Amino acid sequence: MAVLTPSQPAAAPPEEPAAPPTPGRSGADARFVVPGAALTLLAALLLGFAANLTVLGHIEHARAQQTGFDTLRQQLALGTAPVGRLDANGKQVGLGSPVAVLHIPAIGLREVVFQGTTSGVLTKGPGHLRNTPLPGQPGTSTVLGRQWGYGSPFNHLDELHPGDPITVTTGQGQQQYRVTGIRRAGDPAPTVLHTGQGRLTLITATGGAYTPHGVLRVDADLTSPVQPGPAAGGAISTAERPLEGDPAAWLPVLLWLQALLVAVVAVTWAFRRWGRWQTWIAGLPVLTAIVVALSGAATELLPNLL
Rank of each mutant, 00 (worst) to 15 (best):
S7K: 11
G57N: 01
A100T: 04
I281T: 03
Q74N: 14
E111F: 00
G233A: 03
T71L: 12
P133H: 01
P35A: 00
T195R: 10
Q8T: 15
A289D: 06
A81I: 06
V292S: 00
G79F: 11
L254K: 06
P17M: 13
Q92M: 15
A297S: 15
T40I: 10
A220M: 03
N155Q: 14
V93Y: 11
L41K: 12
A62V: 05
A297T: 04
G186T: 03
F114K: 05
L53T: 11
P247H: 05
T238L: 15
A297N: 11
P126G: 03
V218Q: 12
P228M: 01
L287H: 08
G136H: 02
E111M: 03
W250D: 08
P165Q: 06
A77P: 04
L251M: 09
Q176K: 05
V34F: 12
L257K: 08
W256I: 04
P252L: 02
T195D: 07
A205E: 08
A259H: 01
R146S: 11
I107V: 01
T268L: 15
T142Q: 07
L134Y: 02
Q65P: 07
E15M: 14
E240K: 00
A19D: 10
P153N: 07
W148F: 06
Q147W: 11
H61P: 04
I281K: 10
P165D: 14
L42I: 05
V93H: 03
T67Y: 09
L254S: 02
A81T: 02
A259L: 07
N155V: 06
P21L: 04
R63K: 05
G90A: 10
V55N: 14
G234W: 13
A263H: 02
Q174W: 04
R273Y: 12
A88E: 08
H103C: 12
L287R: 10
T80P: 13
A2Q: 15
R241T: 10
R63A: 13
P135I: 05
T80M: 03
P303K: 01
H194K: 15
A106T: 02
L95W: 13
L78Y: 14
L302E: 00
L129D: 01
V33S: 09
A209D: 11
V143H: 06
I203T: 07
P188E: 09
V34S: 11
A189D: 05
L257W: 06
T5W: 15
N304F: 03
